[in-house]
């Protein structure tokens, strides 16, 4: 899709920049801009809820938490000392990437009507979700009704992470 191309290029540039840069503080900010671009890409392919979460967590919270962590550490480790890349990784990773690309060729195209997902599951959700769950939004129905246990345990994980953050960041600790 040509319309996503500029944003995808920017995404790759920001992701590469976050890895390559030496200074950790700039890495945090580059990661923040990466999150912004990624949320835009999500919005462009129509996954608005994922874009919203990416905007909230990735661009807002994660940047602040990373900065907090960085300021909690000593100044010595703000510069990375990276060992040279081993030859096995240089050879193996392109091969793995090519394999993944080869596998991706078999995936159905975006919005393909004949693919397995849109033949069996999607019509079921789209046609019956209102009668079965009484929820006007299909995405909400899938997340909260058909996959409610999954969502429930995800919530537990996020809650645990929140408690851990509160314990670490509380005043007068350490």
């Amino acid at each position: 899709m040509i319309i996503e191309l500029p944003l995808l290029i920017l995404l790759v540039v920001t992701a590469g920049g976050a890895i390559m840069v030496k200074d950790l503080i700039s890495a945090v900010f580059i990661l923040g801009s990466y999150s912004f671009v990624l949320a835009l890409v999500w919005a462009l392919v129509g996954a608005v809820d994922v874009a919203f979460v990416e905007a909230v967590v990735g661009a807002g919270l994660a940047t602040v938490f990373f900065l907090l962590t960085l300021f909690g550490t000593t100044e010595k480790d703000t510069h990375i000392r990276r060992p040279p890349v081993p030859w096995s990784a240089l050879l193996g990773l392109p091969v793995l990437g090519l394999l993944l690309l080869y596998g991706a060729g078999d995936l159905p195209a975006f919005g393909d009507v004949a693919s397995a997902a849109s033949t069996y599951i999607s019509p079921e959700y789209l046609e019956n979700s209102v009668e079965q769950t009484r929820t006007p939004n299909v995405v909400t129905a899938v997340l909260m009704d058909y996959r409610s246990f999954d969502t429930f345990i995800e919530t537990i994980v996020i809650f645990t992470a929140g408690i851990a953050c509160a314990l670490i960041l509380r005043k007068g600790g350490s």
Partner: peptide
């Protein structure tokens, strides 16, 4: 649909 995310962005950007 997109206005909601945009509003959220603007407010969160302020907080961050």
């Amino acid at each position: 649909m997109f206005i909601d995310i945009s509003t959220g962005y603007a407010l969160l950007n302020l907080v961050g």
